[in-house]
Design a protein around this nucleic acid. Structure first.
Lengths: 340, 340
DNA sequence: CGCGATCGTCGAAGCGTTTCAACACGCTAG
DNA sequence: CTAGCGTGTTGAAACGCTTCGACGATCGCG
């Protein structure tokens, strides 16, 4: 491997000059710059990142902690990761991947100076990683909204607004009896931040609009979905509008609604909360509230990068949800007052 | 941050002694070792990985190139990644994540000595990354089976055996008219290695067993699945046994078979080729040939690690597929010779 | 015409490890 | 009693880069 010295020699300059050509931190005369650049090209020189990190205290790597256990909303996770990696590359950074359960890993890579900054996904209401993150010297951004961010920056979809938007849309299209099929029971019980927030937004807006609202957790398996649908339809048979916030259960919910004689998009409205591609790959194109996971990932990187330059104060950014109408929506009873 | 010098001072030894305690490359007397370990604990010392990489030429990081574009078999990809990261941690290594399209990234991280080794996922029959990988000084393992590995090591599920196993199972359970619903047309056309191999194994074994076999690409969308099912059933209405090798299309294939009056697990046998968790989360628990993605990922790491120590010759490992019978299988006509 | 400012370049001092050669010490064997 | 050996420890030299301070040259200006 060619070193900076080799390049310097080939270009007839000193190593520091080469370094300045590379970093642009000092002005270099055009002819010198040209000679250096040519030498770099000829030798195929690549700076040794370890040496660079040692000298400059910058690794050009950011750590990303992602929930790799398969199961929950895989495609959302992939999109987060894609957003993070892609945006990081835009800042000339690479991404070191940590698994969710490897809590010690955060301390390890941070204290070992393997990363310049850290992004953590899937943060829960009372996340045990928050104190750890607070003690790192690297800037940190959380994807998710913990109860107490402990002075850390956060970014997330505004899930409370998601719930509200779902309820509002159903109300606006004439539904009166509505239900939210939420996350799996275990997620609900864990009080994963987003699950609670959706419920809160949904029930608040439903009651403000005078709707009769039911909330039911919903397992991701066919059986779980069936059970949830049954629970809602048995308890409130008049339900005509549903918000479904469980990507994996969605197909099974649709299937079971059908089995119970409901025709989605005709006598029953379903609003899915999921990434657009998932909404489109159902049996019926779903009216949905998008989870812009890739965008959130890239915003997270931007925030963390900003903190890597100047000292920014902690900040929380909640992205406004957007609803797209597709085939699974239909006017509810109140929209057709004359029909019995 | 405490440095190795701080630790040395606190323990009353030299820096090199601390280094040897850490690496175990030289014997250290028990009392000294104890003092050093205590100093490390007290100071919360963590070696600076950049410095270590510079001095030792080992980063303790492996590069992983993964197809992050969401869409194709997300859960399989996640499981690969999980397998790689988890196993790498077992070897005290971390994982740097590269996206599939960032071909230059390979050269960048390798030449910049950011990684000790590279694992590349989703390798195609004629993959443009192979020549690049061949020129790296770091050991490399491909997940997938290119036409010409160019002297690189590979690991993959034996997809030819998968196709054969599917056909054999259907033959053994008495089916005569069988079909393979394969990957999406674009994947087939790209001659992605595994798609071709499944087809080859399936048709060869089917014809060896005297079956009438149809092969049909199958898009992942509801429409694509429907079309594929229609194509098979229209062309060969007597088909009673299906192998489906498309995780995303699977639910739609099942739904459409049902719409066409087929009762899977009763008059029609379906063997899914997919990870076990996907097989279990269908409307009906699927008889399936597992794609042990996590295992493959961890094997890839083991291979690359072996190459990091001694010089191993290139090697190709194909994992034997395993079929698990569940509810979607049923005896075919030949198994009931007396019934008309 | 001389003076200070500006520009481009350089030498050297780190950055925090690893590792090699060497050394001190206490033993054993001759 | 000493030569020789093994064991545990050390000092110093890398590793490849960044960056600070300094220096000579060039320039504008009074």
């Amino acid at each position: 491997m060619a070193t900076i010295e080799d390049v310097a020699r080939a270009a007839g300059v000193s190593a520091s000059t080469v370094s300045y050509v590379l970093s642009g931190k000092r002005s270099i005369s055009p002819p010198t710059r040209r000679r250096v650049e040519q030498a770099i090209a000829e030798l195929g020189y690549r700076p040794h990142m370890g040496a660079r990190a040692l000298a400059s205290n910058r690794t050009h790597v950011i750590g990303l902690m992602a929930p790799l256990r398969s199961g929950v909303d895989v495609s959302v996770i992939m999109q987060f990761v894609t957003g993070v990696v892609t945006r990081a590359r835009g800042f000339e950074h690479d991404v070191l991947l940590l698994t969710q359960d490897d809590v010690g890993g955060l301390e390890r890579v941070a204290a070992g100076s393997m990363v310049d900054a850290v992004v953590v996904m899937d943060v829960e209401a009372d996340d045990p990683r928050i104190p750890v993150l607070g003690s790192l010297r690297q800037p940190t951004v959380l994807i998710g909204l913990p109860r107490d961010a402990g002075g850390l920056s956060c970014v997330d979809l505004d899930f409370e607004a998601v719930g509200a938007l779902g309820a509002r849309h159903l109300a606006d299209t004439g539904h009166h009896d509505v239900a939210l099929l939420g996350s799996p029971p275990e997620v609900m019980d864990r009080h994963t931040s987003y699950a609670d927030r959706v419920v809160r937004g949904f029930t608040a807006t439903a009651s403000a609009r005078g709707l009769a609202a039911t909330v039911e957790p919903c397992g991701s398996s066919p059986a779980g979905a069936q059970q949830a649908v049954d629970a809602v339809l048995d308890r409130a048979p008049g339900t005509t509008g549903l918000v479904v916030h469980n990507e994996r259960a969605l197909p099974h919910v649709l299937a079971h609604l059908r089995e119970r004689g409901r025709v989605v998009g005709h006598d029953t409205s379903v609003v899915a909360v999921c990434p657009a591609d998932v909404a489109l790959s159902q049996a019926l194109p779903m009216t949905s509230i998008d989870i812009p996971a890739e965008l959130i990932g890239s915003v997270a990187v931007e925030m963390v990068m900003a903190r890597l330059e100047g000292e920014q104060p902690a900040e929380t950014r909640l992205l406004a949800p957007v609803l797209t109408e597709r085939a699974s929506g239909t006017p509810g009873p109140a929209a057709l007052p004359v029909t019995p």
